[in-house]
Design a protein around this nucleic acid. Sequence first.
DNA 1: CCTTTCATGTAACCTGTTACATGATTGG
DNA 2: CCAATCATGTAACAGGTTACATGAAAGG
Lengths: 189, 189
Amino acid sequence: MDIQYAILGLLCWQPLSGYDLKKIIAESDLFYWSGNNNQIYNNLVQMHKNGMVTQEIQYQENLPARKVYSITPEGQGELTRQALSEPELPEIHRHFLIQLAWTDHLTTEQIDKLLAKYEEEIAVQFRMRQISPNLTQAGPNRTRRESYLWRQIAEKILADYERELEWIRRVRADLACENFQSNQEETLP
Amino acid sequence: MDIQYAILGLLCWQPLSGYDLKKIIAESDLFYWSGNNNQIYNNLVQMHKNGMVTQEIQYQENLPARKVYSITPEGQGELTRQALSEPELPEIHRHFLIQLAWTDHLTTEQIDKLLAKYEEEIAVQFRMRQISPNLTQAGPNRTRRESYLWRQIAEKILADYERELEWIRRVRADLACENFQSNQEETLP
DNA sequence: CCTTTCATGTAACCTGTTACATGATTGG
DNA sequence: CCAATCATGTAACAGGTTACATGAAAGG
């Protein structure tokens, strides 16, 4: 999945500046990009060259000028083409699971402390997404079908956090009650 | 999460060559790296310089020489240090959800076709992981606790595929029965 | 007074990917 | 005969990150 698809998608709702796009992408949790300047602005320049978008400079008093981009019919075509392309599998970087994979030289208490910290971080993310509706919750709602899809997307992301929480809690409970013997030979300095 | 942590982790079980590591990392689904030469070999050279690993060249007849790497006490220390570091949130690249987000100019049949293809791809991955135990299933099993952790990691990865399947099936069923009106103005060429 | 917001842009960097190169051996 | 496996390594590139630069205005 290309960031240009996401940009085209956002622009097909309404014209936006690079600055707008950057903020939307950075704050969304559907988009995994950091939303840094380089990527957004350079891609917009390239898409402009390719005729996917048009640029209109809006001068404002007391504020810097905005370059507002709109999608072209060619851009719409590209959006549809990519919407119909082969689905790609999700790529999940499970940093914590990798970390956990080599914790057997720690004490069970240390492992539980790690799990507790991870649980808290996930819980924070979960609660944040439960209360404050970000882009994902507030889609365009142009048709009933589109708002249905966006709701499903938002709920999937939320549900993933919930599953993660359930998993951590089960593992913590197991580690606590199953009374695994911890490796004695390696204690921390 | 650094690939060097994963390499140190694998080496703390047993000495391995770059070629071995490359294959393990490429075939695992806990590790998200492609397992390409450049990354593995360069990191091993760097880790050797930093004293994290030692190198032993094994000459073989009729086959190219192997450079077998072993973890050093400093490497062990680094592994423990990173095992105790702050947990990181998972990063999920939901390519398909992004694709799906802008499919409202397609017909409901086209969307269902996309979902069906995605469902099949996920189902393939799910079945593969259900039957053939890869690294994740076959951990080191040095202690009861370690093999418990590895089982939980493997089950989490499998469960994620299952949840994904359930989600797709629910969305497809909804789209089919709820009878959403599709956008009439945009049909495909 | 310092920080944030608006708004654009550049430079340096790091990670990771594909592709190439070597060269013998095994298997369909 | 062609492809894959073993085993190492290099080169080129793509993608994405942080950090920096400008400069005015608004807010605590």
